[in-house]
Write a protein that binds this DNA or RNA. Sequence first.
RNA 1: CGGAGUGUAGCGCAGUCUGGUAGCGCACCUGGUUUGGGACCAGGGGGUCGAAGGUUCGAGUCCUUUCACUCCGACCA
Length: 420
Amino acid sequence: MRFSRMLIPTTKETPNDAVLASHKLLLRAGFIQSAGGAGLYNFLPLGKITLDKVRTVVKEELDRAGCNEVHLPIVTPLSLWEETGRADKFGKELLRFKDRHENSFTLSPTNEEAMVNLVRQTVKSYKQLPLNVYQINWKFRDEVRPRFGLMRGREFLMKDAYSFHATTEDMQREFDLMEQTYKKIFTRLGLEFKVVEADSGAIGGAGSKEFMILADSGEDTIMVCDSCDFGANVEVIAEDETKCPKCGGNLSQTKGIEAGHIFQLGTVYSEPMRAEFLNENQKLEPFVMGTYGIGVSRLLAGIIEQNHDERGCIWTEASAPYNVDIIVAKAKNEEQMAVAQKIYSELQAKGIDVILDDRADKKTGFGVKIKDFELIGMNYAVVVGNDISEGKVELIARKDLSKEIVSIEDVVNILVEKLA
RNA sequence: CGGAGUGUAGCGCAGUCUGGUAGCGCACCUGGUUUGGGACCAGGGGGUCGAAGGUUCGAGUCCUUUCACUCCGACCA
């Protein structure tokens, strides 16, 4: 992609009302913009690309774990919510409206009822179990106070998975599989995270675990053990507790951003909704369920909260909109453009996501391009400038801003190796 | 829902106290000079001052009502 053809409205000034680094930087770097209402954002080209990259990582790992991707309508009949009593329980956070025939609907904030409905209409036998179905779809919650940009929007992208089983043991097996799958997803995304014991809240059910991105700006306080892998949200453990209940080690307090949550549901939805299958003994039984969520758009904010500096975003390799930014110092210089084009094509041929900053207007000098690189936070920049007379280009790593001069012939292989 | 604040050009703001021609910076357009760390000079376009009502010869400014947004708190898979 050529920078000159892309809508990337970076700004020098920080919006006054943004507080969190991720909120400020995603706005300044042109990933998102306000859509005019609280907690509603337009995803601009860079934001859309990044969101899709993160979404793809989530999808690939779930598919690998045997889950089935489906797509449910965002508009759900309120009657489904009345079957489980959650129409009342969810309160005002559940946005309701009526169609022209005066039928009531909601904009889905989560889809337990809708997914149980899907499955009860199609799965009738224990032979069809277990089953894990998921979607990656927009959710709407009429939050009391949306805030912090993508961290707590009213409309947000969430992966929600639901598993259906004949027995509690099999559901617990799937629960463990999902925990492992989530660990793979968060690791691939390059995140530092902690799995903690959590409260089940409005979703209900027995056990639940949260996946916390460790960041000082996190809204959740968690207790972590320094000698084993135990961790818990302060919702479920006394905040003044100092000893690990699992191994007796020391507990310390830290902040986390909840980016994933997995639940053992049991039959709390399948029973009231009469979602049943016929077992081996020809008896009807309610499905034993689990449910598993990841806040995909929140992950973008979480990645930046954990990875940024005073100059801008520092995307991880799996999440960066582009891994390499080729900066042509003087885009009107034909030799520089030719060298840049060559490196660009070779990187593309190697399957690396690369953008060519070919902007040649007189307002956009070298300084602007390098500042944009640092603000947007792609992994590496290749500066094609005066050094080409000696057969060299400059390679800059965004993470530590280290620079090295490398030969034009080597730069592609060096990048392929670094990004492997 | 309680507390605090802010609405003036795409963005960031001044002007409001003390009523009298709508301002500044960034961005944008034209021309010229620049060109390795967010350039310079000259010229230019863009506003029903959040909305409604009121006071006044005259309202961005004063009064009343209302809406929206932001922050703190409570709440939150």
